[in-house]
């Protein structure tokens, strides 16, 4: 049988997917054990035990200065910035994408501007943001928004303007105005695409969040990672990175689920 025709069954697929992850974990444990056999004080590849101890302090013991549980304070701060940034970017992308996609004059006027903004590397704008908006929360959220909104905007605009011409003409013969076409024809069909764009934007959004936190912050997952880097605290960095990965996977899964639930027609028509 050709390999292109071998489709693993549901149970086997989970097993196959877990295999490389487990192998990597095993490889890490072997390497870490090896290093510790040579030097019991090794900090580069910490064993699970030392990670647990280091994290327990951050998870369950209040910080003496601030009285906060550091890990949870970092998580809340980062998720808040990410959520606000992603929310503003999504809303902007939806509104601008609809207007650009449906109305040719708007596309002609603002299309080149959006393209120009989209090609600027957002990190290059970070100093400008810090100078203009200060070192507070606003600059960090603004970096995320500027980083992901233009791409999402262009994606939604392209998707909307690619709607079959027949549909737009048909809507007009049913008496729909530009506004009605926008909210009843274009908007609902842009929504699944918007959730998809959000999923794709999550990766860059995390990049911009960690960058902003690394440079100027006093709380946050990215801040913590870059802070403890000075002490070679891999026993904190590795669990933090794993936690970020888990959060990202959960968000991705939630968006996929939301899209399937809310827009069954876009996923092969709901059963």
């Amino acid at each position: 049988m050709r390999w292109v025709n071998r489709h693993p069954r549901q149970g086997n697929r989970i097993l196959l997917g877990a295999l490389p992850i487990l192998l990597l974990l095993l490889l890490y444990l072997v390497l870490a054990a090896q290093r510790h056999a040579e030097n019991p004080m090794d900090k580069i590849l910490p064993l699970p035990g030392s990670m647990r101890d280091a994290m327990a302090a951050l998870l369950f013991q209040a910080d003496q200065l601030t009285g906060q549980f550091v890990f949870w304070a970092d998580t809340v701060a980062s998720l808040q910035r990410l959520g606000i940034g992603l929310g503003i970017a999504t809303l902007t992308a939806l509104v601008a994408g609809l207007v650009l996609g449906v109305l040719p004059p708007a596309r002609a006027t603002f299309g080149p501007l959006v393209t120009a903004i989209a090609v600027i590397p957002p990190i290059a704008l970070l100093p400008i943001l810090f100078i203009a908006l200060g070192l507070g929360e606003t600059a960090k959220v603004a970096l995320i928004v500027i980083g992901i909104a233009p791409v999402m905007m262009r994606d939604i605009a392209a998707h909307v303007s690619d709607l079959p011409r027949e549909q737009i003409v048909k809507a007009q013969t049913l008496g729909a105005s530009s506004w009605q076409i926008m909210i009843r024809v274009a908007l609902p069909q842009a929504m699944p695409r918007l959730l998809h764009a959000m999923r794709l934007a999550l990766g860059p959004a995390w990049v911009f969040l960690i960058s902003a936190e690394a440079i100027a912050s006093d709380v946050g997952l990215g801040y913590r990672i870059f802070l403890v880097r000075r002490y070679l605290s891999m026993d904190v960095i590795i669990p933090y990175v794993a936690w970020i990965a888990i959060l990202a996977i959960l968000m991705d899964g939630a968006l996929t689920l939301a899209s399937r639930r809310a827009f069954p027609w876009a996923h092969g028509a709901g059963r």
Binding site: E166, Q167, K170, Q189, W265
Partner: peptide, 10 residues
């Protein structure tokens, strides 16, 4: 039209 004249989301 021959195709695409109904709204897929309704």
């Amino acid at each position: 039209f021959q195709r695409y004249s109904v709204f897929p989301h309704l």
